[in-house]
Nucleic acid binder design. Structure first.
Lengths: 350, 350
DNA sequence: GTGAAAGCGCTAACAG
DNA sequence: CTGTTAGCGCTTTCAC
């Protein structure tokens, strides 16, 4: 097989430089080289290049499950930024198992990834140490953990919950229940906090968990300035349709049931929708329902779901930018935190 | 930095062989090496290995858009099989653009992928040639194109449509409309064919496009053996919710409207659901609705959608197995075709 | 059962 | 502006 040098009459060095532009090449040589490349269908071997430069032009993405629609959007956001910069990604699914997670990280190191994007919730900080020790920049997506050597990008869960609650308050709802996931899992705490803040700002007091003691008037729906806001009504259940249904049922069974339900994600909100309709309640007439995330199905149920969009692709892009900054040595601080705002998506359900 | 040889007092050769097991290593040496590896946190450099062996242990996956929920399932299916065999995947999104598609293929070659999985519909066979010429085994997912050097795995669109149609016939529906996508795009032709076959088998004749001339009785709903089946009623529109709504509307506006609508995918079926409910029709009482794919939202709309599941993950697994066969030299034929059955998912809408 | 040496395809350092 | 040389970390002869 012809070596490219032979056809173009140049050394491999020159080929390298015409391709990478690290040093000037005479226009004529350049053309000869390019022509030969074209003719021979030559493609540089990325592995060899990586071995030599110790940069694989690859970044690793570690997630629980690409099948969960949040993560493809994340991956796409990363690709939006990293792709044009010449990086490919390899994806490791952990299914939430710590063993698989550690295996994935080892694999990423062995693959010589130039950077790592990590988007798994329940992780011990120490599991990331091998990666950090290997000198690989890490960006964590969606966690809140602050750790030396790790940049964090996450959505503004607290602010989003606050905005959602305020939105409901503005529309006149006064007894707003919160159907939350298990404490400690995912962004539960932040969202409850935001919800509470909004209620407190509106004069609703702090509110006890679950069947918070009645604190106000009965149910001013178009309630103007005068109507008193109910204290927080938080119910904890699972992050599933069934969980949402159960949580909603518990709240609606209260002697003074809420006139609006804010759910920790859309799937739960759809469960809440189920029970509301089952009971013959009109949505949003009798009870408003809101979710979080804006999954595909949110716009497909009846009534379509008002929700706070979780900007996965945005988060991916922002994380990728941070990573690029690191890779190109543009960042000094040992770690950073970045918050991406959620966006209110108004539809019929609230 | 300590070289591993030094701590364990062995040559790199021996380390290599203890790790890869290509030749016997004395038990005692073995242990010493493993201990040293553990102690030093040594991880073999996959790039170097790849350069030497010219096998990157990587497979490329080329798809239109990871954000479309069909493809993550595919990717996961691939990973189910390829992961344990030691392969990682890199994903290229083409957004359906031929330019990006070709760039992705070039990129895969440059990355020295050991195999390629290709899941883009509208592709000219010639675009795959560079890959085939590079000696890289290719598995095509979801296409129907038969091409030398390319194995094909796809779902049984024709059989699925036949089964869906038969299911509706069994339940007593007699005037079944088909809301189809644009001719030539995706699996449209096969699904129409399956639908026609089932109708013909049931005595419904061949059926003209769109407003097929009336051919039978008026609307036996629980119609037993006697009721005559209507000839095919096919409407072509877009693969979208809006498209489905328009197609359904056209069919329902017919002088003798169908009593069941089979839609080419779930998103379209949800559009059909929209218009049916809008018109005060009961589903499935007045009109049954079925989709294809079983997307997440299918079980979240009201009534929940009966559909033919498109077994993306299964297809991924089957494709991966084929690819492994090729990689390990277990297949002789120049190309093969494999069909994965669809599965009926019964819910309320039909 | 083990080691020494060569070389995969590339780029960086050092000539010229 | 271009070429020669060396070496990235591994696996594979070939030798013992």
């Amino acid at each position: 097989m012809y070596k490219r040098q032979e056809l173009a009459q140049v050394s491999a060095t020159t080929v390298s430089h015409t391709l990478n532009g690290r040093r000037p090449v005479a226009e004529q040589t350049r053309r000869r080289v390019l022509a030969a490349i074209e003719e021979l269908g030559y493609r540089p071997n990325v592995l060899a290049r990586g071995l030599r430069t110790s940069r694989s032009q690859t970044i690793g993405l570690v997630i629980p499950d690409i099948t969960n629609p949040f993560y493809p959007a994340l991956a796409r956001g990363l690709q939006d930024v990293l792709g044009p910069a010449g990086y490919d990604q390899i994806i490791g699914n952990t299914d939430g198992e710590r063993r698989l997670e550690r295996a994935a990280l080892e694999q990423m190191i062995a693959r010589q990834v130039d950077g790592l994007v990590f988007a798994v919730f329940n992780t011990h900080a120490e599991d990331l140490l091998p990666v950090i020790d290997a000198g690989i920049p890490v960006v964590r997506l969606g966690g809140r953990l602050v750790q030396r050597g790790v940049d964090v990008v996450h959505s503004d869960d607290e602010g989003g919950a606050r905005e959602a609650t305020r939105y409901l308050l503005e529309r006149g709802y006064r007894r707003i229940g919160f159907v939350c996931g298990p404490a400690g899992e995912g962004p539960a705490a932040e969202r409850v906090a935001g919800y509470r803040t909004a209620l407190a700002d509106a004069g609703g007091g702090e509110g006890a968990p679950v069947a918070g003691h009645a604190g106000g008037c009965d149910g001013a729906v178009v309630g103007g300035a005068g109507a008193e806001v109910r204290p927080g009504l938080v119910v904890r259940t699972h992050f599933s349709r069934q969980g949402g249904a159960e949580g909603a049922a518990r709240l609606l069974d209260l002697p003074e049931p809420p006139d609006a339900l804010l759910c920790a994600n859309d799937v739960m909100a759809i469960g809440a929708l189920d029970v509301a309709l089952e009971r013959g309640l009109r949505v949003p007439g009798d009870v408003a329902i809101m979710g979080f995330d804006d999954i595909e199905a949110a716009s497909m149920v009846t009534p379509r779901l008002t929700t706070m969009a979780n900007p996965a692709r945005e988060i991916g892009r922002a994380g990728a930018r941070r990573l690029l900054d690191r890779l190109e040595g543009r960042v000094a601080e040992p770690s950073s935190e970045m918050v991406i705002p959620s966006r209110l998506v108004r539809r019929e359900s609230a």
